[in-house]
Amino acid sequence: MQHDVEKNVKPYEQTFNTMVPSPFVKFMRKCVIWQFIRFVIINVKMIIVVSKSH
């Protein structure tokens, strides 16, 4: 079954040599529980980067 986003890939055009996200990846981008976890992790990483930069 072809997913919506795959329709944007055109054979032998510039879009042909890349990857496109699966429906699962797109779901996880919007999944509030998973994104809350990522929110915490990204914030921690950013704080570390900031502290290493001062």
Binding site: M28, K30, V32, Q35, R38, I42, N43, K52
Partner: peptide
């Protein structure tokens, strides 16, 4: 370890 990138709601909230 400190170079990362991702797409999602989390970045939007940040």
């Amino acid at each position: 370890n400190y170079t990362m990138g991702e797409i999602g709601l989390a970045g939007h909230w940040i």
